[in-house]
């Protein structure tokens, strides 16, 4: 996989996932920011307002307030209207708890601002099982699909 850029994370959970990244230097809360029926960002002020999150790898700065995401990721996963994975510069406990319940792949804690390192729309591979966990930017013409986000 020559030409692949890698970013090590300090913490991760879940399975290996590959998918397209939706990137913004903004926060995240399933309650505050999403229309979970339509599967889009609904808060008008959010930098991803109007865009779909379904089956995509969200790369965002940090979680917002509120505890609802701890349940909502599970509910969204049950209906299949859920991101493929979550990537943050920093997390709060709610996002960790929600990902743990829903079985969502999540990764956080990078040496760089990950929202600036990953281009919006890039093909990304997350490997939470690696030591340390790693996010890879994959050239579009690279290897076959892996994981649920493919």
């Amino acid at each position: 996989m020559s030409g692949v850029q890698e970013f090590a994370a300090s913490a991760a959970m879940g399975e290996k996932v590959r998918g397209l990244a939706v990137v913004a230097s903004d926060g995240f809360s399933a309650r505050y920011d999403l229309d979970r029926i339509a599967g889009i960002f609904s808060r008008p002020e959010h930098k991803l307002a109007g865009r779909s999150y379904v089956g995509l790898i969200l790369v965002l700065d940090r979680p917002k307030g509120g505890v609802a995401t701890a349940w909502m990721l599970h509910e969204m996963a049950a209906r299949g209207v859920v991101p493929a994975a979550l990537v943050f510069n920093t997390v709060n406990p709610i996002m960790v708890q929600g990902a743990a319940l829903a079985g969502t792949t999540m990764m956080s804690g990078f040496a760089v601002d990950i929202t600036k390192a990953v281009p919006d729309g890039a093909l990304v591979e997350l490997d939470p099982t690696a030591t340390p966990p790693v996010l890879r930017l994959v050239p579009e013409a690279s290897s076959p699909d892996v994981g649920p986000g493919a």
């Binding site: 309650r31 349940w71 909502m72 599970h74 509910e75 996963a77 049950a78 209906r79």
Partner: peptide, 9 residues
């Protein structure tokens, strides 16, 4: 609350 839980929760 059940909006957060959903039917699955």
């Amino acid at each position: 609350d059940t909006e957060s839980l959903g039917a699955a929760g």
